[in-house]
């Protein structure tokens, strides 16, 4: 990916993140906090799942440009997916961060983080929102 495009995607999602607010009908959402013990990123993520489909995700909190933009892009990509599709997407993203084989097609704008492995201290920032979502998906699985 071209460096300028990468930067544009990340900065755009940082400056204008998708769904960065607490939902007004909070009761319909599952909420999880995700934070990074080695830095100060701290996000609350709200997920609305109906009939096994992710209907909506929003988030609130304080986090760096990488975490915030990554959360925004994740939200773009996950809304409308089934829980299984979401898991597959997350696994794919994780593979990319850890330099394993991954499917670029599935990730859309999230490929902007395909060089983040070079900055070890920021890898976790990019993955932080995914950890939050996974906690929720695992909760659902346990409840089933």
């Amino acid at each position: 990916m071209d460096e300028n495009l990468r930067r544009e995607i990340i900065l755009d999602n940082y400056s204008n993140p998708k769904n960065k607010y607490i939902p007004s009908n909070e009761k319909e959402y599952l909420k999880v906090n995700t934070n990074n013990s080695s830095c100060i990123d701290n996000l609350d993520i709200y997920v609305k799942i109906e009939d096994n489909i992710i209907k909506d995700i929003c988030f609130e909190g304080e986090a760096c440009a990488i975490s915030t933009s990554s959360c925004s892009i994740m939200i773009h990509n996950l809304i409308g997916k089934t829980v299984d599709e979401a898991r597959k997407y997350i696994e794919n993203f994780n593979n990319m961060l850890n330099e394993n084989a991954y499917d670029e097609e599935l990730l859309n704008e999230a490929v902007a983080y395909n060089t983040i492995y070079k900055q070890n201290n920021r890898k976790h920032c990019a993955y932080l929102p995914y950890e939050g979502i996974l906690k929720i998906l695992n909760q659902i699985k346990e409840n089933e």
Binding site: D41, A65, N121
Partner: peptide, 21 residues
């Protein structure tokens, strides 16, 4: 600009500062 992002920026120039609480 989030404090941690400033610290990362300075780190690119080998300046070590702390961001956080």
């Amino acid at each position: 600009i989030f404090s941690q992002d400033v610290a990362y920026y300075l780190n690119k120039y080998n300046i070590c500062v702390r961001a956080g609480n």
